[in-house]
Design a protein around this nucleic acid. Sequence first.
DNA 1: ATGCGTTATATATTTAAAAAAATAACGATA
DNA 2: TATCGTTATTTTTTTAAATATATAACGCAT
Lengths: 114, 114
Amino acid sequence: MKKSTVKLKSKLWIEINGIKCFGPGPCTLLELIEETGSISQAAKKMNMSYKKAWEIVSRLNDVTGHQFVLSNTGGEHGGGSHISDKAKEMIRNYQHLQERLQGFLEREEGFIDI
Amino acid sequence: MKKSTVKLKSKLWIEINGIKCFGPGPCTLLELIEETGSISQAAKKMNMSYKKAWEIVSRLNDVTGHQFVLSNTGGEHGGGSHISDKAKEMIRNYQHLQERLQGFLEREEGFIDI
DNA sequence: ATGCGTTATATATTTAAAAAAATAACGATA
DNA sequence: TATCGTTATTTTTTTAAATATATAACGCAT
């Protein structure tokens, strides 16, 4: 008889004025926009449709009142996007929070007994 | 200019052998089964289809190897269900954990600045 | 002017999840 | 044996989410 493995899992997100706008998906997306310089390439890298990526960016800019992502259309390579310092700060905060939550869950996991 | 309200939210669940089996839904369901003595009435009370409720119960019994919910079919009132001590223990553990997580999030919320 | 890759947006299609509906079995009771 | 409300299960329908497709605009380069 094999002992079963018990794991605590969670999903963490931020709501602004009641609107869910920042979780694991948006966080990864922002990182990839920074890395690739483009929303469409970022979306492709994480197997997300451009439309969904655009909606995330749009909602983020909208609800925070900050320009998390700045975009240009046209030009040499068709345009592109990059993220603001505010966005970078948000990424850092979220990741730090995520790590602390992970620690919390791992400590608690020991107390779950089935 | 009104300051926007920032809230940290999370969802917490337990996986056994990689299978998600206990979260807020199942927890409420078990409580209502205890309260009503029936899966169907419990499901109705929380606006859940009987089928989904039954699947939750089935998976829970299956994956834990414990009889979290014990059912009888037929008989005076058509049968019914009740939950085991193991299930009650699980509910307590989960709720306690949820409370501690809530505290964690509220403390962290102050550090999020947008 | 034409081509390029991108942003921006709307529309259509597909997929997955949830709910609803239908059916059978069960066992006490009348 | 007919009735009852439940559990148990399958099948159908509805709903929601995600994806795919299509189109226009943009501005630089050739």
